[in-house]
Amino acid sequence: MNIWKRLSDLDRRYYYVVLILVVALPIIKPWGLPIRVGSTTDDFHKTVEAVPDGGTIALAIDYRSDCIVELNPQVTTLFRQAFAKNVKIIMWSNVDEGANVTEPITRAVGQEMGKTYGVDWVNLGYKPGGEVTMKKMVDNFWEGAAYVDMQGTRLEDLPIMQGFNSLRDADLLIDMMAVVPSPAQNYLKMVSIPYGLPMAIGTTAIQAPTEMPFYSSGEYKGMLAGLRGAAEYEFLTKNPGPAMMGMDAQSAAHLLVILLIAMGNIGHLMDRKKRAGAPTGGGS
């Protein structure tokens, strides 16, 4: 039995163990590979930077706990960049877990940067209803947000909400999303295109190809794509964090996957060649 046959017959669990080791080693001992910033991340950074001091970012958090690795670093860095230039953030979620998964990290950044909840940022919690809620938030934001924040505090008791009556009052709309169908494309339909509100997104690597046409056409002013986008954003804002740390492991795993794909294809070609050369059996 040749080596290719043995490798192709090997129990796939061995490959999983190798993958786990390849990802784990750079976590224990990081290599510090260089990071080059792409145009999508650069545009996202510039779009946030263009929000005037004292302005407001409307932030929709549309992902669940399975995507926190890629999207939580994006949200954390966004908060750091916005708070550094005194920009306020009003956030909510169209996905049940969204507000919960970002609550601890946004509180931590707020405390670290001396910001006050309800004055500099607010988490309105889960707001179901999809496009209907989006449209309501344009017509009457308070009604769309069901009059309360995540903790049940009435919006009239939150200073940040005074004068914010419509999504159109925001300077920038950002959707951090990782669900299907894409809430970001719904925000384009319901808010950004009809009312001319600039929009940017952060998403997972798996959804980046689906959203890319809207960035290329200029509808998204910027885009963070997956852990790589988060690492570039951390690098640009000089806030090294978990995304930059994770890129070493990500790169190592990619090398392994490329190696396995190459080996699989070589094995397949060798097998085909062997079969072509083998004498065909006679039949009655």
Partner: peptide, 25 residues
């Protein structure tokens, strides 16, 4: 991109196990 996202999922869990639970990273 799908491979990248799936690796990120594994990465997140390993970061948690090695950093937050076992504290060896």
């Amino acid at each position: 991109s799908t491979v990248m996202s799936r690796i990120s999922l594994l990465l997140g869990r390993l970061q948690f196990l090695l950093q937050d639970w076992l504290r060896i990273a």
